[in-house]
Structures are given as structure tokens and as C-alpha cells.
Design a binder for these strands. Sequence first.
DNA 1: TATTGTTATACTCTATAACTATA
DNA 2: TATAGTTATAGAGTATAACAATA
Lengths: 168, 168
Amino acid sequence: MSTKQQTGPDDGPASRSRPRGAAFLLSQVGAHAAARFAERIGDLGVIPADVGLLRMIATRPGRSQQSLAEELAVVPSRVVTLIDGLERKGLVERRRNPRDRRNHALHLTAEGTLVMTRMRELGSAHENEICAALDDDQRAQLIGLLEAIAAQQNLAPGVHPGYRQTSR
Amino acid sequence: MSTKQQTGPDDGPASRSRPRGAAFLLSQVGAHAAARFAERIGDLGVIPADVGLLRMIATRPGRSQQSLAEELAVVPSRVVTLIDGLERKGLVERRRNPRDRRNHALHLTAEGTLVMTRMRELGSAHENEICAALDDDQRAQLIGLLEAIAAQQNLAPGVHPGYRQTSR
DNA sequence: TATTGTTATACTCTATAACTATA
DNA sequence: TATAGTTATAGAGTATAACAATA
């Protein structure tokens, strides 16, 4: 077999690196979007994993670390580390549950709520940056296609695979 | 501010986790696609980072580790580690260049070439799996939208951001 | 005995910096 | 003195397993 491979019939020396498939583009553009988002929220002092956690706690205040671990499909000790970070940053509070003193009820602090507002603003700016090449119709089209894939692949809405462990 | 946040006006307790934006979906679906691909190629004994490296060496045999490090925007020692792995697996060979004995000319072995063929087959199956929810028109549409984003965001065609370091 | 959370520990990934050998 | 590659080392991230408190 020659050195030529992949799609093109006229592989010049490292010439036109052809389009690749949708799967590669998804992974490439997705990783880029994630990295840019991480940069943005870094200014708030939080990491990407914090974002989903804060949202989950805000949506259902008082939930336990166990429930987070289950929904994210991570090991409980991972949640300990992440909540430790959020508590140290003053964004989340662990409250002992008098009914069952084994579990911790998680709540956002006032500052945690503030950070969530800022996160939403950053998220909006991020969305515009990533989609700068598309007009409104195209954005809607893209969202539709991605949602179709996500649903068919059994991705839980709003749950980022970057947390996972067990599913690995 | 109440516990209600984000898009929906009727946030039931953890009810409908709304669509999120295109940026989140890209990151979510992209990470999923990458993880599934990693699983597949794991059967070949290679990791995702190996794939791009093998392709780059196949496309331009004899290239140096330096040139790989530059194109991928990683530190040279990272390339050492990765090529060590590929050499240990018997897929790549370092040949001393008699003209300049400082650098190593990299070449695929016969087995490396074989693995690339298998990778292409797996890649094709992977593409079909990820796009199972879409018909042909929709796949083409998706590729078009993603290419537009990739170009506008200055992503080098075929270079996955997962290697990066400096650009962080 | 089962459950929640924590700690101790180890492993993987990847960067930095010092170093070797060539030039 | 500059360049290609390597080694030694350290840090981040995340898993496993043993453990403590409570039920």
C-alpha cells in the first residue's frame, strides 16, 4: 500500500486535509467550545464541573451528594471533592439534615446565586461566540440536529459526559 | 431571586431540563462522540491521541517529532511519550537521519499501516453510529454547519484540540 | 447490616525544566 | 551557541478502597 490514504485521490504532500466526517467535526468543535467556555468561567473562579453542579443544586435545593453522584454517574468521593471546592469558594453550603444526620443538604449561598447569574450571562456570550458563523435559521437547524443525535444516543438532557466514570 | 432560573418560566422541581444552547449541545454530543470513538479504537490497542499521530506520519513519512509537536501545538516531551507508545506497540519506527543525526525520521511499520486501515473501518462505523438519528441530507447539513463554525473559529482542519497545551 | 459521606491512596495524563547528543 | 530529542519530576484530575458516623 502506498502512502496515500483516506478520502482524497490526489494526496499531495500533506495537502488538503479533507473534511472528515460529522463525528470528528462534532468532537473537534465540541472540545473547542468546551475549552473556550472553561476559559470564560475561569474568570469567575469556577471550573466546568462546577457549573452543572451549581445548576443541579439551584434547581433542587437541599439535595444530597448521593443524588448528585447518581445523576452524574460518578463515584461519591468525586462529589466530595467538587463540593469541597464549591464550599471553599463560598458558593455552596452543606447543612446537616436533622431528620437523617448522615446526609448533607446542599444549598447555594447568596454568592452562589450571584455566580449563577453571571454564568448565565457568560453562557449567552459564549453561545454567540461559538455560533458567530451562523445566522438565526442555521443556529436553530444546528440545535435541532444535535438534539436529535443526543436523544437517539440516550444522552440525558443537560448532563455533560465529562463527569462520567462508570459509563466508561 | 427565587430558585427558578434559566430559560423556562415554569420550573417544576427538576422538571424538563430545557434544550440549552447550541454550544452546550456541541460540547455534550462532541464529548460523547469522542468517548465512544475511544472505546472503539481501544480494541485496536490505541488511544485517541495515537490516531491523529498515525495519520500525520502516514501522510508525510519521515517527518520529525518537532514538526508533529509544532502542528499539534504541544510540547516536544509530549510527542516523545506518544511516539514511545506507538513504537512499543510496534506501529511506528524511529529512524536516525544520517544527514542530521539529531532528529528522528518517523515511519509507520507494516502493522501500523494495517492498524490505519482498521481505524478507517472503525471510523466509518463510528460515523454511522453517531449519525444514526439523521438521514443523508441532515448529515450533509450538519457537516456544513460544523465546518462553517470550525473555519470561523480558526480550527485547523483535522487537528483535534484535545492535544493542545500552549493554546490553553 | 446498610447508607452517607470522608479520607487515604494510587494511577493517568501532561507540563516544566534540566540534560544529552549532535550540529 | 542552537536544535532534536530525552529524562526526571511535579501537578492536576479522578478512581478505588478502607473507614466513620448514623440509621
